[in-house]
Design a protein around this nucleic acid. Structure first.
Ligand code: MN
Ligand code: MN
Ligand code: MN
Ligand code: MN
Lengths: 143, 143
DNA sequence: ATAGCAATTTAGCCTTGACTAACTTTAAAA
DNA sequence: TTTTAAAGTTAGTCAAGGCTAAATTGCTAT
């Protein structure tokens, strides 16, 4: 019953790709709640125009996305007003911010240029499992 | 003109997210050419049914994707026949396979369980810049 | 008070990447 | 040689996540 993937490569790649598709489905949500949290912390409130500027997308795109987030229970909003995180949204934002920071710090700690790390961490963070994140965190903390 | 992102955080996040969206647009292509190459190496040819099984998607989905890859010059195919990589497709497959392997080996080398590394590498690979990849490779090779 | 500008929303469009159901072709068995 | 099962294709649907253009709302300065 050995299942060491180095010796016995997985024939069941399908599981791996199913998980990958799941991660993709969560990426935009994760980046939005994290950014909304940042804006509230930095500027007191999260406005559409600021999200559009930071993500480099149009106001219409932000509007669509916020509707999805609202439908999924991560934010609340009223027409022409600022956007707020629900408890669920705040919990996700906190988790994502911490994860993002660990990934960024880890990359820098192994010698990646901070500028480059900033780019790469934005994508990598969404594909790092809890287990791998713990390894990263432990590595950064110096053993 | 210091631009150290740790001290002077980027206000221009938009660049980071634009690059992230670019990476996403390439992911499926990258995974397909790599898998097609694997199938040709392992089984002599790449058939739709094998791609569908390995990715865990339907035959119709594979068909759509192959049409896109063909349109973009990565593969050739004729109805009811196997799929072949073009030169461009093979070049991309080679690059992706090497990158994938480096990411996987790196994760294992820092203590991530091989099973977990197999999952995480499938997503992380698409977000690792050339610079970061070099750091990973050097780290694996033991300095 | 209101005019005008900035912010937001709405409507309509597009591509990607997924699906099901139905059809066609190929190839193997009988 | 015919039948049949597997493989592949086609048609139609959907959601996510982008866009532009046009309409609407809110705020600010006059
Ligand atoms: Mn993030
Ligand atoms: Mn991100
Ligand atoms: Mn890969
Ligand atoms: Mn991959």
């Amino acid at each position: 019953m050995g299942e060491d993937s180095a010796l016995n490569p997985r024939h069941n790649k399908a599981e791996v790709f199913a998980r990958l598709r799941d991660a993709h489905a969560r990426e935009v949500t994760e980046d939005y709640v994290e950014m909304i949290g940042d804006l509230i912390a930095e500027e007191g409130e999260a406005r559409s125009v600021a999200l559009a500027e930071r993500f480099g997308v149009t106001a219409a795109t932000v509007n669509n996305t916020i509707k999805r987030l609202e439908r999924d229970g991560f934010v609340t909003s009223r027409p022409y007003r600022a956007i707020f995180l629900t408890e669920k949204g705040e919990a996700l934002a906190k988790k994502c911010r911490e994860r993002h920071q660990i990934v960024y710090n880890f990359l820098v700690s192994i010698g990646v240029d901070p500028e480059v790390a900033e780019f790469d961490a934005e994508g990598i963070e969404h594909h790092v499992s809890e287990e791998t994140l713990r390894v990263f965190a432990r590595s950064v903390s110096g053993l």
